[in-house]
Design a binder for these strands. Structure first.
Lengths: 107, 107
DNA sequence: CAAACTACCTTGCATAGCAATGTAGTGAAC
DNA sequence: GTTCACTACATTGCTATGCAAGGTAGTTTG
């Protein structure tokens, strides 16, 4: 899979999944992996960053299957950023499709 | 516009436009700019790289409106790479849409 | 206690886009 | 006749993000 394509989009994916319900990091990796190749080394720093920026809050939950899980919950600010990012993504894809399908738009 | 989204995709756009007919750098910037914000500082290094990798050939054409134009022509190898990249792009977009729309796929 | 799984985390590297800047040619304005 | 705007090429240093590779620690199975 083309690594470059993912730049900025994984952030959007994480937002989208968390909007549907709180998750912990390892769970996010597994969910995203069903559709896009992703590694833990990508997700954890991303979650830290977005938490630091105030878009997520975290809480720990004990697990009977391993170490405690750090759950991430989207904040109201995060929700605003997410909706904006989602719009940008769709309009970007539309722009790319215009270029690809017509090579050019006018004339 | 989100800069990160463009990573790797501008390459695809350049391929797509050149598949439709030879262009010079400045022209490519203008064509892509109709749909996606782009700067010259991005396009010229990209064209150099893809030419060096054997995906484009170039030829100069005098212009009455300024300095000579360097036209880029896609090579057979370039065409193969382009078709592959295009497939990857569409499958990537599909994957992202799956994540965004369902948050998850299974269950 | 070793292997396999869950679950967290960090470091250094590669990549691509961009702003800023520079060079030259043409043509119009003043 | 020189200043401005446009065409058209190009380079440098910066930034951001994803990844491989590595590590820590808890649980369960043998």
């Amino acid at each position: 899979m083309n690594i470059q394509f993912k730049k900025g989009v994984l952030e959007l994916c994480v937002f989208a999944i968390l909007e549907d319900g709180d998750c912990y990091g390892y769970e996010l990796v597994n969910k995203i992996s069903k559709n896009i190749t992703i590694s833990e080394g990508t997700i954890y720093p991303l979650l830290r960053r977005l938490t630091k920026e105030g878009y997520f809050k975290t809480y720990l939950v004990e697990s009977s299957e391993g170490p405690p899980r750090k759950y991430y919950k989207i904040t109201p600010e995060g929700l605003v950023v997410y909706k904006n990012l989602k719009k940008q993504w769709f309009s970007f894809v539309e722009g790319v499709n215009n270029v690809i399908e017509r090579g050019d738009d006018s004339e």
